[in-house]
Nucleic acid binder design. Structure first.
Lengths: 340, 340
DNA sequence: TTGTAGGCGTTATCAT
DNA sequence: ATGATAACGCCTACAA
């Protein structure tokens, strides 16, 4: 780092003391307007840029919040980050973004790094640390909020259980009885809740839960595609598939198309997230809408409360809603098989 | 920020001086191994976490690089960020990510903020500041590298011109003569080069360039969809469309499907980027592959050279390559029209 | 091997 | 209204 001009340099050039310069720059009330103006002008033309590290040392506040995400290219996170950033900036905070790549060790490193950088608070999405969190944050005592981790006291989540139930209920109402669930092998509470919702609806309708119809994905296109290949290889494939997320659903549809079958005629598909792309997909994807932007906004709001020292914050759950588009329809009557 | 334990606290507890503690923590050679070990253990159990802001003040280095991106949900950027992050971490740098939302003022603010945080260097993608950059970086003298900004001396770019030419040449070879280009109204060099490549190929084949066939998108699904609606409303619609990027292409295909036409039978579509999704789309998208990860990796490598003070760095251009999938085919013979 | 002293750039307190 | 001084947490000569 080259040596930048400091307050001292300006003080010397202006023939005043460093504290006067500091006051002038901060529009301190008790300073003559003329010298203040003169100093500010001087600072401007000397190319002064304050050192936040130095300032934070004495103010004991970096005005920074750390945000942990799994991967920048996870499309679900885009708007969420947006929500966090805008709420943060509105309160004068900058946000430090870091990717955990769904790796618990990396995530721990990030938390440590955030703490060493003395961020004011942190928001964590897609945490892999799970329950070990309370412990970690004993070591690094920082205000923090988890996203989509409803069991954690300081968290903001989507109603994953309810959303999943709406989706599967919709399929049952259409007449489906062989409904598969493509999960996410990364153990997230989101997956657990969506899976529970799926099972609950089947039980409610006395539809037996078959292990073979619950198959593992990983939230990616490829994971979805492979899961569907396994389902298609079953003696009796499902007539509908509920997927962990939209990306998985797109992978699933790819495999259905690949064997010459068609959605929703041969198999219905429902996703979760309601990405921008969902409405533009072919066919447009039936999915469960998740309020991403508000999720980020609320997480940031909760974090600000924690930073202010409030103790009365409670886990928040935002509603999810099914959006019916064109990948869900009644099961086709297997005419040929019946004749046999 | 609560008061964390400092080196002084440890020194007091261990009955030594602060400098001894500092040396023990840094595995300084000239210190007895036994006291060093004792101090480290003490630091551990007292929950010591070094203050990077304080350290950076004296070392004059934050070991941080700033990365400006347009928007976290821009799928093109995922792997690029990945490349930057991994290369940075390998050299002991953390990366500070911030979104400019394609807004020049926001971008300027980010640069200012990065400078005030005393980052060691910055990488900028999708810059909206364009030529004003040299000027801005006179005010904030920081090592910096631009991505996809080939005219800038410190930059790493994809061969946008060559990639576009391959795409359009492919369409011409298939027999197309009415080829449209859906651009990006945000004025990026990427758009200018892809547009130039498009025009160059048409000229080379003596195909007249029609203004009506060059229409504005904005790199989003909706922008692509609307552009295609305009093209479809033309007296003589194109038989093929080359798009600024894959996302635009998906929007374009949506509009084609919406009027009951089909890709590539009624209209060929080619994108740019080769997102993961491209291979899974229906039909799988013909597109120009961009080496995103390496783009990020090389940008970071160049930045490190600049940080080391090397002056001999030159703009780098990485090759792009057409990937033919299933959205490009020969133009359909308009049989009905011929009969009239 | 260890301690002392000074300083990084800033702000805050106490004088003046 | 302004200046001097100390302090934030850390590092690094230099001295012991």
């Amino acid at each position: 780092m080259q040596k930048a001009v400091s307050i001292k340099d300006i003080a010397k050039a202006a023939g005043v003391s460093p504290s006067t310069v500091s006051r002038a720059l901060h529009h301190h009330p008790r300073i003559s307007e003329e010298t203040a103006e003169r100093i500010r002008e001087l600072a401007q033309q000397m190319g002064y840029s304050p050192s936040l590290p130095a300032r934070s040392l004495v103010t004991r506040d970096t005005a920074t919040i750390g945000l942990v995400i799994s991967h920048v290219s996870d499309p679900f996170l885009g708007r969420l980050v947006n929500g966090v950033e805008e709420s943060a900036q509105a309160e004068g905070y900058s946000v430090f973004l870091s990717s955990s790549y769904r790796n618990a060790d990396l995530e721990r490193n990030i938390i440590r790094d955030f703490h060493e950088r003395r961020v004011t608070g942190i928001v964590v999405t897609s945490s892999q640390i799970n329950n070990g969190y309370s412990e970690l944050c004993e070591r690094y005592p920082l205000p923090h909020v988890l996203v989509n981790f409803p069991d954690y006291p300081h968290s903001v989540s989507t109603d994953n259980l309810g959303g999943a139930q709406q989706a599967v209920e919709h399929l049952v109402q259409l007449g489906h009885r062989r409904i598969a669930y493509v999960s996410n092998r990364h153990v997230y509470p989101t997956d657990l809740h969506r899976r529970s919702g799926y099972k609950a609806v089947l039980r409610r309708h006395d539809i037996p839960i078959e292990d073979a119809l619950i198959t593992e994905g990983d939230g990616t296109l490829e994971g979805g595609a492979r899961a569907m290949q396994r389902l298609l290889a079953l003696p009796l494939p499902p007539t509908a598939v509920f997927c962990y997320n939209d990306v998985t659903a797109m992978g699933v549809m790819h495999s259905i198309n690949a064997v010459g079958k068609s959605v929703p005629r041969d198999c219905s598909v429902i996703g979760f997230d309601d990405l921008d792309l969902a409405a533009y997909y072919c066919p447009p994807l039936t999915t469960v809408h998740q309020p991403c932007y508000r999720l980020g906004q609320r997480a940031m709001r909760m974090l600000l409360q924690l930073i202010e020292g409030r103790e009365d914050v409670e886990a928040e759950v935002l509603p999810a809603g099914l959006v019916v588009r064109e990948t869900s329809g009644p099961p086709s009557v297997p005419t040929r098989r019946r004749r046999r």
